[in-house]
Amino acid sequence: MKILIVEDDHRAAKLLAAALTEIGHTPVVATDGRAALSLASAEMFDAVLLDVMLPHLDGVSVARALRERGLSTPILMLTALGDLDDRLAGLDAGADDYLVKPAEPLEIEARIKAIKRRAERTSETGVLRAGDVEVNEIKFRAVRNGRLLVLPKLEFQVLCELVRHRNSVVTRAMFYSSVWGFDFEPTTNIVESYIRRVRVQLTLNGEEDPIVTVRGVGYMMTGEG
């Protein structure tokens, strides 16, 4: 795979590039945000490994700009251990996943393949339904009874997870894994906060709330597929 590494630490970028080359990939290095945006827009990459703190243009801004330009290339944010705010900001901006630095080449490879598999699973129609709620994962579009729902990326992914498992409980752990890529439970109430935002959109015109809270477990979307 051709992988764009965006890292301003020259030594770290060189070591990561060498390790990826060793397992059969073709890395290209950019050391600032502007160069990364230019390269990712001009060339085809299988994935972008994007550091958050960069000269000229930070990683979150780069991710947002790439998505605004319509690029669907998998983006993995590189964050320091414990920087939850950086991870959330990157995911909100359009990143697909995150990795804690220093990232292991084999894990990078596995994460990229997982992102591609998820895209392939929804490539036929991408449409999911629960009652009068419909989401299209390919077009990034959600409607309720014909009314367009205005949802940023993470809220949209939360809704997709609920619709995908309609009439079944989606646990907090499932949300953490599928939406945020966490393999642990944060101490903050992230899921509750995003569910609340989704509910606002679903009931904007006074409609009945289709999301049921299963206390102590998670949430369930009601409705037929």
Rank of each mutant, 00 (worst) to 15 (best):
E208H: 06
A130L: 10
E155A: 01
V198Y: 09
H56C: 06
E185I: 15
M174A: 14
D85N: 13
S72M: 11
V48F: 04
R141K: 12
I138P: 01
D8P: 09
D92V: 04
T125G: 07
Q157A: 15
F156I: 01
P152S: 00
I115M: 13
D132T: 11
D96K: 04
R199G: 07
V60L: 00
R196H: 14
Y176T: 08
A12S: 05
R64F: 09
D97N: 05
R64P: 03
V100D: 00
R147C: 04
A30M: 02
R64C: 08
H10W: 08
E185R: 15
V52S: 00
A114D: 08
R141C: 03
R67L: 04
V217C: 08
P74R: 00
T122G: 10
D85K: 06
M77R: 03
I3V: 15
H56K: 15
E224W: 15
N189Y: 14
E124T: 12
E22H: 14
V100Q: 00
M220V: 14
C160Q: 12
D83T: 01
L76D: 04
K139P: 02
D183I: 11
A130G: 10
Q157S: 09
N189M: 13
F45N: 06
V179I: 13
E161D: 09
L78H: 01
G94F: 03
G59V: 03
G218Y: 07
Y176F: 15
L84C: 05
M77P: 01
A114F: 05
S61Y: 02
V60K: 11
L162C: 02
N167A: 09
A80P: 05
R129N: 14
D83S: 10
K14M: 08
A114Y: 01
I138F: 06
S177P: 06
F175K: 10
L154W: 08
A13E: 00
A119H: 12
K2P: 11
Y98A: 06
T122Q: 14
D97F: 08
H25F: 06
G181H: 04
L106P: 05
A80G: 15
F140C: 05
L162G: 00
S41M: 14
F140N: 09
A18M: 12
L49I: 02
L66Q: 01
N205F: 13
K113A: 14
A114M: 07
